[in-house]
Amino acid sequence: MQLINMREMKERQSGKIKAIRARRELGRRIRDMGLVPGTEFLVKGRAPLKDPVALRIAGFTLTLRNSEADFIEVEVE
């Protein structure tokens, strides 16, 4: 178990959200899409230029930019 920033995750790596450091609008949007502490996900892939990143969560796929992933702290194996 270790805590890392979501940006540092590799493709096909899975993790569990530990904390969302963003507030106001960005924080709100991240949470509204179901990314809340405790959510488990898999890094499904990255765009050709490595940004944005696609996350596979239980029932759906989300994409976010690296600059947004910076605010998300993840627990990985």
Binding site: E25, L26, R29, I30, M33, P52, A54, F60, T61, L62, T63, L64, R65, S67, E68
Partner: peptide, 11 residues
Amino acid sequence: TATPFIMELPP
């Protein structure tokens, strides 16, 4: 500032 990109990739 850029609007957050957080977007769903629908099935």
